[in-house]
């Protein structure tokens, strides 16, 4: 038994989601190798002393930019064959790769794993998290994508993994050509990794009104999220969406403002430690899962909240 973690990188560093993947691999109690394929060198020293990590393979090639699956999968495939488990993060990066790898290996990937029961049995949410399925795989290689928020940070105490370069397998199949990226740049913490998330919904009414949310986010060092309704209405960009088909978050504090609480939204945030709901409709379903509910006009309550937080922070 041996596990390969396919690491995602963000701005020249291993993404936090991939650290959670290593924690998931530690649950399997097998030796762990990490594969990092990028277009520029990545600092992997932070991985070298993690428990169980033995080898860190790096492959640097210009065509690995933009994480285009068709470019990465041939190299991942030639490595994956030596392992019993291959772990991806359940992000847009990992979802793209896991399926293609599964098809090459003739394996059914298990996506969105939230719990590792044993080497062949895994728990994953279905129906937007309204049911939990425990599934068993008889495939020789288990291809998994894990939900980062359901795993802790990995434990240290390793023996010092060796970093080595991989031999890259050329992608010979037809592949897409990168045209452009429009990535959100924000000084705020990453939505998937933030300690506090404040989200706005349809109730905000406009992009302009999201400033009320931004102010509190900046006071708290929080990330900003949104419901599908707010994204569809164009108040905020698509990558703010929290929910079944958006981002899954589990911060210590989640503040839902003007969000009614459709099951698809709740699926993306119900594992948060403390949920606060602010909504003018006392019957909104969001109150059924909120630890603290505040009924009222958000346009009056948000400035009040901002002032109260300022008071706390200066105290």
């Amino acid at each position: 038994m041996r596990t390969l973690v396919i690491a995602e990188t963000v701005a020249g560093a291993v993404a936090k989601a991939s650290m959670h993947c290593i924690a998931a691999a530690q649950n399997l109690a097998t030796p762990i190798d990490v594969l990092i394929l990028t277009d520029a060198a990545v600092d992997a020293t932070g991985l070298q002393n993690l428990q169980g990590v033995e080898k860190i393979f790096t492959g640097v090639q210009a065509n690995f930019a933009h994480a285009i699956a068709e470019e990465l999968v041939p190299t991942i495939t030639s490595h994956a064959k030596n392992y019993t488990h291959v772990i991806f993060p359940a992000t847009s990066f990992g979802k793209n790769l896991a399926g293609r790898l599964g098809a090459v290996l003739d394996v059914q990937p298990i996506t969105d794993v939230i719990k590792i029961m044993s080497g062949d049995t895994f728990m994953r949410p279905i129906y937007a998290g309204n049911a939990m399925a425990t599934v068993q795989s008889a495939d020789a290689i288990k291809v998994l994508s894990i939900r980062p928020t359901n795993f802790p940070m990995p434990q240290s105490g390793g023996a010092g993994a060796a970093v080595m370069e991989v031999i890259v397998t050329a992608a010979t199949e037809r592949k897409p050509k990168f045209v452009r990226a429009e990535l959100s740049s924000s000084a705020r913490p990453d939505l998937g990794a933030a300690r506090i998330v404040i989200s706005g919904g349809r109730g905000l009414g406009s992009a302009e009104n999201f400033k009320l949310i931004e102010r509190i986010a900046d006071q708290l060092g929080a990330a900003i999220g949104a419901s599908r309704a707010a994204v569809d209405a164009g108040f905020v960009p698509n990558d703010y969406q929290v929910g079944q088909t958006g981002k899954i978050v589990a911060p210590e504090l989640y503040i839902a403002v003007g969000i009614s609480g459709a099951i698809q939204h709740v699926a993306g945030m119900k594992d948060s430690k403390i949920i606060v709901a602010i909504n003018k409709d006392a019957e909104a379903p969001i109150f059924n899962i909120a630890d603290f509910g505040l009924v009222g006009d958000l346009f009056a309550l948000l400035p009040e909240l901002s002032a109260a937080i300022a008071g706390v922070k200066s105290a």
Partner: peptide, 20 residues
């Protein structure tokens, strides 16, 4: 199916908290 479903269960329920 390649994956065998051993069990399907309800997720842990979050109970409603309080209104402040």
């Amino acid at each position: 199916p390649r994956l065998k479903t051993l069990r399907v269960e309800e997720p842990a329920k979050r109970s409603a908290g309080i209104k402040v």
